[in-house]
Design a protein around this nucleic acid. Structure first.
Length: 232
DNA sequence: GCGACAG
DNA sequence: ATCTTGTCGC
């Protein structure tokens, strides 16, 4: 069994250390990363993908994949404990570290203010932003249809994130502080990494690599085996 | 008690 | 998340 009471206590202690304001050690980022996790063999294997994109061209320059045995089931509110071991393994394989990292999931917009984006950012001490496709907690006023429409995501009297329409006729994204990136900056950086799709490029590429999408297969074909390009 | 519930 | 075909809409 899993002692969720102990995990809650651990999260609350860690959450108090999350930096919610801008404390990014760069003027303009050179490398922005994206992280995503997938599962194999009915969930027995956790597969994490990390991609590095050059900014502002947003071209893929490196990717790493880590596969390890799954140690935790999925429990809403405790996603980070299930995913961070694999993310850490992929992170350690990177030749270069990014200035900023987009994590697939929530950051501040979490019941105890420590979603996977915040938790991982704290662990590796890097600025992170949480980009989630669905709501975990909190509420927002109805969002307008126009691209770029936004509403603060509120919970217990405080803003914990943004509900943002990244693309027309698509469900909105939930953007929040991960670590060292303020809420407004988080949305600003996500908007700067868009290329016409629902998801920002770092997240989109991480998903493409993790799920071996055709787009990634084509990229591989055009980028001949560079030993430091990376498979895992 | 009942519904909600990242990936 | 993952298992999976076609299908509706822009």
């Amino acid at each position: 069994m899993i002692d969720t009471a102990a995990l809650r206590t651990e999260q609350l202690a860690s959450a108090s250390r999350v930096v919610r304001e801008d404390a990014m050690p760069f003027d303009q980022p050179t490398l922005i990363a994206g992280a995503d996790v997938g599962f194999e063999q009915g969930g027995a294997i956790t597969r994490a993908a990390l991609v590095l994109l050059r900014y502002p061209s947003l071209s893929l320059v490196e990717y790493r994949i880590a596969r390890i045995a799954t140690t935790m089931p999925y429990i809403p509110g405790f996603l980070s404990f299930r995913e961070y071991p694999a993310l850490l393994a992929a992170w350690q394989q990177l030749r270069q570290k990014p200035d900023l990292l987009f994590v697939d999931g929530h950051g501040l917009s979490h019941p105890r203010r420590l979603g996977v984006a915040s938790h991982f950012g704290l662990l590796v001490d890097v600025p992170t932003i949480g980009v989630a496709k669905r709501r975990l907690c909190g509420h927002a006023e109805p969002l307008e249809d126009a691209v770029g429409s936004r509403r603060p995501l509120l919970d217990k009297g405080e803003q914990i994130g943004w509900v943002w329409r990244s693309k027309a006729r698509c469900n909105p994204l939930f953007v929040s502080t991960g670590h060292r990136v303020g809420l407004d900056s988080a949305l600003l950086w996500v908007s700067r990494c868009m290329k016409g799709y629902r998801l920002p490029e770092p997240t989109r590429w991480a998903d493409a690599v993790a799920s071996r999408r055709p787009a990634f297969q084509r990229w591989l074909a055009q980028h001949p085996a560079q030993d430091e390009g990376g498979a895992g």
